[in-house]
């Protein structure tokens, strides 16, 4: 299926690899915060809401990525507000938002079926159809994301350790949180193309979890997570080509395998 005569193999494989690694680096560096701040379910919620962004993008005739970022941000801010109202437990709130936004997204997509949105592409990703323009978007957005992350880094760590302590030491907690949410929305929009909505959280969390055992500082963990994610993309793509597997899930399976293998590896003890 992949060996068509019109596409030379090196090109689309190269595009997929380059874009995939770009996304994996950004997701590794962002993912560590998702793990430290226990935001896995929150990430899931944002990812689920991304489909609604796709539908809105199509309906309004704007760039789909803008639609995704817009919806993710709205959901993130809505979540912050609802949490402050303290009516429901956080996981219940997230469950409501995740499933209702996914359902709303599916319903909305059905309106634009005439435009032929390939639902599977958005749900599970389609890294093999990456174009040079996509690569530009991934690396442009990725550079911005990493820049923002570097700028927020110290304050984010401080808030992760203890929010009140950070605040008494002069960290602007609200500004930092909003900036991180924006970053998060951007990363999810980027990652969707590669692994799809349903697997985004996996690529945020699994490489970060893999990195934990080998890291002694937060920065090390972010770098190792980026490396583990990149390896997952390379390995997943390779097996996807070799055995004709769906690429997004193959990448996630690869990252899970890397995690399992990493558990078996001995860790150099701190002297």
């Amino acid at each position: 299926m992949l060996m068509t005569t019109t596409i030379t193999m090196p090109d689309f494989v190269l595009y997929a690899l380059v874009a995939g690694i770009g996304v994996a680096i950004v997701m590794g560096a962002t993912g560590v915060f998702v793990v430290w701040r226990r935001m896995a379910y929150f990430g899931d919620t944002l990812a689920h809401s991304a489909l609604l962004g796709v539908a809105i993008g199509f309906l309004l005739g704007i760039n789909v990525n803008i639609g995704i970022v817009g919806v993710c941000l709205t959901i993130a801010i809505g979540m912050v507000y609802l949490r402050s109202q303290r009516h429901l437990a956080e996981d219940t709130l997230l469950g409501i938002l995740a499933h209702s936004s996914l359902a709303l997204g599916l319903v909305s997509v059905s309106f634009v079926s005439a435009l032929r949105i390939d639902l599977m592409t958005y749900l599970f990703g389609d890294i093999l159809s990456v174009t040079p323009a996509d690569i530009g978007w991934v690396y442009g957005g990725g550079t911005v994301a990493l820049g923002v992350l570097a700028w927020l880094w110290k304050d984010l760590i401080a808030i992760t350790v203890h929010e009140d302590l950070a605040r008494t030491e002069g960290v602007n907690v609200l500004r930092t949180q909003i900036a991180f949410m924006t970053l998060f929305a951007l990363v999810i929009a980027m990652a969707m193309k590669i692994v799809g909505i349903l697997l985004v959280t996996a690529l945020l969390i699994i490489p970060a979890a893999t990195a934990r055992r080998f890291s002694r500082t937060p920065e090390q963990m972010a770098v190792f997570a980026a490396i583990a994610g990149s390896l997952s993309v390379a390995l997943g793509l390779q097996s996807s080509l070799m055995w004709d597997l769906p690429s997004g899930p193959a990448i996630v399976v690869a990252s899970a395998l890397i995690y399992v293998v990493s558990i078996a590896l001995p860790v150099r003890r701190i002297a």
Binding site: V35, W36, H162, D164, L165, A209, R212, Q220
Partner: peptide
């Protein structure tokens, strides 16, 4: 300020 306790997630190497 010293807070009552610090609940640093065990996944954060610090």
């Amino acid at each position: 300020y010293t807070p009552q306790q610090l609940a640093v997630d065990r996944t954060l190497p610090l």
